[in-house]
Design a protein around this nucleic acid. Structure first.
Length: 557
RNA sequence: UGGCAGGUGGUGUAAAGGUAGCACAGGAGAUUUUGGUUCUCUUAGUCAGGGUUCGAAUCCUUGCCCGCCAACCA
């Protein structure tokens, strides 16, 4: 009994365990307040989605809340364009923050904190150059050396820091540093920089400030100011934790706690904002929302749903070891979701003409076809069946291998929701290519009223040649040719997949005329496709989200 | 040769000293008017050595391997 109960429980990941322990011991009065802290210097990607699901998810699960806080301490790289896209993407994923905040909201408070540390003799103004500071920092195996400015008096430091703030110092001429330990084995404790001078216009504070706090002197204090209980970040911030705690202790502010988990890596793509920005700037992709990008906006345009992404984040788990998740898991998640939701439509991507010789010219016979067999309540739409049709080039072979269930001379197939046809003759062009396939249809074999008694192995999708709508189809494939482009030697861009995008014209059944931008469909036997945002009634454009699973192709044919 | 954090099937992730489980991927079959879906079944794993223990993925120890850290980035 006891063991059965245990089996049913989903096991907790290490952060959930920490929170449950805190709740049990009454820490923070049972309060859970997390924050999602993006820097507005790029678009959010699927790795951020993992963090978003974690931070908002923890709050949701334990009756807490989550702040959205922009870590905007570097005006040189940040912009409102990014702020807007980030807010949109978080909401699109299905999460709501209680407060929209900015580290820049705290610039005044942070300045006071710095003054406080100077007064306590724990911070000093250093006139050394960036190069000199780097040289005095030492190396991981050798201790650093004290700066000649390290022993300035409190009064002098106070005056100098004030001058920095007033814009009396040139950019790069001075910095404010914490006075900790130049011999610390942890490099981050070797008198880390707290403030630097930057004459850059900030997207929120404008020209109010010319000194800006570094990450380490902004993040922890922002957490403390907001009384964040669990400050969750990625593994590379582990060495920052002692510094995070040092500032909090010496300032005697709310003791937020930092916890670190392993960031997401995905096969056949890159996940660093720097690299993604490079792909955008160098035009290897059409923009941050190119459907090949692992960005939230790219995935959205590709046809990924919020549900599928949340589900994916759920399945990959939270742990501390480095990981490289197989792209096929993400693909599984979107297929799973779209299988339930996407309406079925027939589109021939690579047409070959079929003439039904015993079907009257000019006749149009409506064939009802289910919109989604997984959701019968979606009903049917009608496909027009006519004498001339298109089927897929690959669905016909003159000399088929055994177990080829499709069309071949003398063989019969079912046209989905319509008739069984038999291939009678192949008409060729002078260059030996196929001009058209001549078939006869079995009159009493219509779907739903089949009295032919004929059993066929294959069912093909098709469209009426006369009624089909030409549409643009963008076939997307993986962005890179190798699983882990970042770990390969040389420039990661050498490994871009030149065939990541193929644009073709396909022939769609008439019902697709009404496709709205953002709407997803299953093109029968071909895959899931999403109407592109640039699609119009005059020119329909579809992006391939993902192919269907294909056991036939997998078997090597 | 410094500090820190990790190492469980191909990929992820559970098992908190007591049956190594789940998902994806792979394989076999059944169903199917999508070679889709669904349903069965299945291959495959505790980094290595030593120790503690009745019993170790788990504790101790040594070694090996991977990652992060020396931006006026976050």
């Amino acid at each position: 009994m006891n063991t059965d109960e245990k089996k049913d429980e989903k096991s907790l990941h290490f952060i959930e365990e920490i929170v449950e322990e805190d709740l049990k011991t009454g820490k923070n009065d049972g309060r859970v307040l997390t924050r999602f802290p993006p820097e507005p210097n790029g678009y959010l990607h699927i790795g951020h989605a993992k963090s978003i699901c974690l931070n908002f998810g923890m709050a949701q699960k334990y009756g807490g809340a989550t702040n959205l806080r922009f870590d905007d301490t570097n005006p040189a790289t940040e912009d409102v364009e990014y702020v807007d896209s980030i807010k949109y993407d978080v909401q699109w994923l299905g999460f709501n923050w209680v407060q929209e905040l900015y580290a820049s909201d705290y610039f005044g408070q942070l300045y006071q904190f710095a003054v406080e540390l100077i007064k306590k003799g724990l911070a000093y103004v250093d006139d050394s150059s960036a190069e000199e500071i780097a040289a005095m920092k030492g190396t991981p195996t050798e201790p650093g050396t004290d700066s000649p400015y390290r022993s300035r008096s409190v009064e002098e430091n106070l005056a100098l820091f004030e001058e920095m703030r007033q814009g009396k110092c040139a950019e790069g001429s001075r910095v404010l540093r914490a006075k900790i330990d130049m011999a610390a084995p942890n490099m981050h404790l070797r008198d880390p920089l707290m403030y630097r001078i930057k004459y850059a216009r900030h997207h929120r504070t404008g020209d109010t400030w010319c000194i800006y706090p570094m990450y380490d002197f902004a993040h922890g204090q922002s957490d403390a100011i907001e009384k964040i209980t669990h400050s969750i970040c990625t593994l590379e911030f582990i060495p920052h934790r002692p510094l995070y705690e040092w500032f909090i202790e010496n300032l005697s502010i709310f003791p937020s706690k930092q916890y670190e988990f392993a960031r997401l890596n995905l096969t056949y793509t890159v996940m660093s904002k720097r690299k993604l920005l490079q792909l955008v700037n160098e035009k290897h992709v059409s923009g941050w929302n190119d459907p090949r990008m692992p960005t939230i906006s790219g995935l959205r345009r590709r046809g990924y749903t919020p549900e599928s992404i949340r589900n994916f984040c759920d399945r990959i788990g939270i742990a501390k070891r480095d990981n490289l998740i197989d792209m096929s898991l993400l693909e599984f998640c979107i297929r799973e979701d779209l299988n339930k939701k996407a309406l079925r439509r027939m589109v021939v991507l690579d047409p070959i003409k079929v003439v039904i010789t015993n079907f009257p010219e000019g006749k149009v016979e409506p064939c009802p076809s289910e919109n989604n067999p997984e959701a019968p309540e979606t009903g049917n739409r009608e496909m027009p069946f006519t004498r001339e049709l298109y089927i897929e080039q690959e669905d016909f072979m003159e000399n088929p291998p055994k177990k080829y269930f499709r069309l071949a001379p003398g063989q019969m197939v079912r046209l989905k929701s319509a008739y069984i046809i038999k291939c009678e003759e192949v008409i060729k062009n002078s260059d030996d290519t196929i001009q058209e396939i001549r078939c006869t249809y079995i009159e009493n074999s219509k779907s739903g009223q089949d009295e032919s008694g004929i059993n066929v192995k294959g069912t093909l999708h098709w469209v009426s040649a006369a009624e089909a709508v030409p549409v643009e189809i963008r076939l997307y494939d993986r962005l890179f040719k190798v699983e882990d482009p970042s770990s390969e030697s040389g420039d990661f861009k050498e490994y871009l997949n030149p065939e990541s995008l193929t644009v073709i014209t396909g022939y769609a059944e008439p019902a697709l005329r009404e496709a709205q931008p953002g709407e997803s469909f299953q093109f029968l036997r071909k895959g899931y496709f999403c109407t592109d945002e640039e699609s119009t009634t005059e020119k329909l454009i579809f992006n391939r989200t993902v192919t269907l699973r294909d056991n036939w192709a997998k078997s090597g044919k």
